[in-house]
């Protein structure tokens, strides 16, 4: 039996677009980069809340990874609280972060199934400025498997000195490199893409907006 508290967000009767942001909060993100990231998150939030259909359908979860992994926001429709990365220090436990993200996705889609909510393909959006300091191979296999089964759309974005070679190996889609500190454009692109998905039909392939923030 699903507790009614968990059920309450679904009373709007709408299908769901689940999206996990897997954000690097290791020491190297501190300073200007973190500020730009938080500004980007604000833009994402405003855009989602401005769209009448997106705000009833898109569910965002946030996973931060540094020396350890923290789930700072569980899946929910965009609400009043804008997710922010409070501090950045420590190492880059990217592998663990990704596994946590995949676990959240599995848990959420299982809940959708129990309740009977149709959903779109889940998105996992990884953002990092470094190189994984833990075991990433297992996570890479999990991502590849989920992508191959068409259960997941995975996006990896590298910032600054991110290890792009390793990032590219994570996904068949490859990885993108963020040009400078253009987090605004990145998150504007993310919101436009998610909104595009939320008004599309379930199962349809949606053309994503042009990437103008990336220097691949």
């Amino acid at each position: 039996m699903v507790p009614s508290l968990a059920l309450a967000p679904f009373r709007n009767g709408q299908p769901r677009v689940p999206c996990v942001l897997v954000l690097d909060s290791s020491g190297t993100m501190e300073g200007e980069r973190l500020r730009a990231l938080n500004e980007g998150l604000e833009i994402l939030w405003t855009d989602l809340l401005d769209d009448p259909i997106a705000r009833e359908r898109i569910e965002i979860a946030v996973v931060e990874f540094s020396s350890d992994v923290r789930v700072t926001r569980r899946f929910d429709l965009p609400g009043e609280v804008i997710p922010q990365v409070a501090r950045a220090d420590g190492l880059t436990a990217m592998g663990k972060g990704l596994r946590e993200a995949l676990r959240l996705v599995d848990e959420r889609t299982a809940l959708y199934r129990t309740i009977g909510v149709p959903h779109y393909k889940p998105w996992v959006f990884l953002l990092t400025d470094g190189s994984a300091t833990d075991d990433i191979d297992r996570s890479a296999r999990l991502v590849a498997k989920a992508e191959a089964e068409r259960q997941l759309a995975f996006f990896a974005v590298g910032v600054g000195d991110a290890d792009m070679t390793k990032l590219r190996r994570l996904s068949a889609r490859g990885a993108m490199h963020l040009d400078g500190l253009r987090f605004r454009d990145l998150f504007r692109w993310l919101s436009a893409s998610l909104i595009g998905v939320s008004v599309s039909r379930i199962g349809e392939r949606v053309p994503l907006p042009q990437l103008d923030w990336s220097a691949v």
Binding site: R11, N12, G13, Q14, P15, R113, T114, I115, G116, V117, P118, R201, I202, G203
Partner: peptide
């Protein structure tokens, strides 16, 4: 149907069988 039943699509709901749940269009 969506209007009278608070939003859900008439061809969506809890899938009784194993395997991936069909989309509303399917």
């Amino acid at each position: 149907f969506q209007l009278l039943f608070d939003g859900p699509h008439p061809f969506s709901g809890v899938f009784r069988e194993a395997g991936p749940c069909p989309t509303p269009a399917e």
